[in-house]
């Protein structure tokens, strides 16, 4: 009895095995061949290398050159704003032209020049950690080092007594995570090294922490914001000229190779070496201003691509 049962049982198992083999149809075979898991990089945490004021964790693609033009207008309200300056549009507190170039997909170098202080800046930005799906790397880490040189003539004979007084250094590790296709958040502690400060209570070397985020409204339109906390950390509140923490909000519109950002911020200045330390305007006293960024990306060395299967042509 038991022997028969066992045989039937065995027979069933074997039939099942055989059936399974024959049922190993296209679907299960394709599943076993599926290679899409290999492509587990979480890409485009942010659309651009910058958010509103601050850098993002994104770097340029290899051999891509980004021409970036930025503009900060004058105060919308308060003493310097209102209808007399067309709500700040008559004034340019800062202008910026910069070029960012991708040496590799992970290493970007950039140069730029700001109107304020005739500041020249040079930076290197290296992506160290790439966020990945499934395999347990939950965030991106990019390291930024930026040097700024004030090129303007001194306002007083005592200013820039040493040439090194013109130079500032920014060191900033940037951590970000794409939580979903819509939401990305970022934290960036930074250390700004200066030789001089305007106020004796204001330390030369400033530690700050920035927070930034993106909410994608549509595929090509995002709401972006960043805030840098300086006062309340290494900077005391008893300064003769009060300084404020920079906050910027904006809409970012991507159209293929271009990115347009329409921003509002209290910071007059564009480059970190300026705005982290010297934001004198406040959101609460009409010190907010309109600003925009135009970014145009150029792919260089396309002629190096000899593969006819991937060669694109613009007529």
């Amino acid at each position: 009895m038991t022997k028969n049962k066992l045989l039937i049982y065995l027979f069933l198992i074997m039939t099942l095995l055989a059936l399974r083999a024959s049922a190993q149809t296209t679907d299960s075979l394709l599943n076993s061949l599926d290679s899409s898991k290999k492509y587990n990089k979480v890409e485009s945490t942010f659309k651009a290398t910058h958010i509103v004021l601050s850098h993002s964790t994104e770097t340029q693609k290899k051999h891509d050159l980004d021409l970036r033009i930025r503009h900060h207008f004058g105060d919308i309200g308060g003493e310097f704003g209102s209808a007399h300056t067309l709500y700040g549009l008559d004034v340019a507190t800062d202008l910026f032209i910069g070029l960012d170039y991708g040496v590799s997909d992970k290493l970007t170098i950039g140069i730029g020049r700001s109107k304020h202080d005739e500041l020249f800046d040079l930076y290197i930005k290296q992506k160290l950690i790439q966020q990945k799906k499934d395999s347990g790397m939950p965030f991106n880490l990019t390291f930024l080092a930026q040097i700024g040189l004030v090129a303007r003539a001194p306002f007083a004979t005592t200013e820039f007594a040493n040439y090194s007084d013109r130079i500032t250094y920014l060191i900033q590790p940037i951590l970000s995570r794409k939580f979903s296709s819509r939401i990305s958040l970022q934290v960036m502690p930074s250390y700004l090294l200066r030789s001089v400060s305007a106020d004796q209570n204001d330390p030369e070397n400033i530690f700050s922490i920035g927070f930034a985020g993106r909410v994608k409204l549509t595929k090509r339109l995002s709401f972006v914001a960043d805030y840098t906390m300086v006062s309340g950390l290494s900077r005391p509140n008893n300064l003769t000229v009060p300084l404020y923490n920079p906050l910027g909000v904006g809409l970012e519109i991507e159209t293929g190779g271009h990115i347009f950002s329409l921003n509002f911020m209290n910071s007059e200045y564009i480059t970190e070496n300026n705005f982290i330390a010297n934001t004198k305007k406040s959101w609460t006293e009409g010190g907010v201003r309109f600003g925009f960024t135009i970014s145009r990306n150029f792919s260089l060395f396309k002629s190096k691509n000899k593969d006819p299967n991937t060669k694109s042509t613009i007529y």
Partner: peptide
């Protein structure tokens, strides 16, 4: 079947 991300373009952007 094709993993869409395996498609390679001239311009990475």
């Amino acid at each position: 079947q094709l993993a869409i991300k395996s498609l390679s373009f001239d311009k990475k952007l």
